[in-house]
């Protein structure tokens, strides 16, 4: 049989802000790069995001947060994925993330952060290069 590999990415909006323009723009760019993107909608609890990531067996979870609650919400998603045996999933984040929050988030398993001014092409490249290889 011929095997078909495709990167699958979950784009999720944890927390209470209602702005998903950036998430949608990124979703389209990922689609145009040949990636399958699952978008779960606004105002998600970390528990809902982790459950969706498990059921969809995604390679990457991209979190977008503009409410300022990223320091709580992003690491919580990483923790829940770990608890459910999905520690191999790459977790990245974006939104209004101040520079000084980045080291702390990375230490908590959010492997890359893309704040204001990030280029879409850089994000797509990062995901392509770092998505885990699954057998």
């Amino acid at each position: 049989m011929t095997t078909v590999q495709r990167i699958r990415v979950l784009i999720a909006k944890p927390g209470l802000d209602g702005h998903d323009r950036g998430a949608k723009v990124l979703a389209l760019a990922l689609r145009d790069a040949g990636i399958e993107v699952i978008y779960t909608g606004l105002r998600q609890q970390p528990e809902q995001i982790a459950a969706a990531a498990i059921q969809e067996d995604v390679d990457v979870v991209g979190l977008s947060c503009l409410s300022g609650a990223h320091n709580v919400l992003f690491p919580r998603v990483v923790e829940l994925l770990k608890e459910q045996g999905a520690e191999d999933v790459l977790v990245v984040g974006g939104g209004t993330i101040p520079e000084h929050d980045i080291p702390g988030l990375q230490a908590n398993g959010v492997q890359a952060l893309f704040g204001p001014g990030s280029s879409i092409a850089d994000i797509v490249d990062y995901i392509r290069e770092h998505a885990p290889q699954r057998s």
């Binding site: 979703a27 040949g34 399958e36 909608g41």
Partner: peptide
Amino acid sequence: SGGAILGDRIRMQQHYLDAGVYIR
């Protein structure tokens, strides 16, 4: 591109945490 945006789940959010429901 071979890519896709899969958005059907957005309408099914109320079931994300129900262990009796699996959505793919």
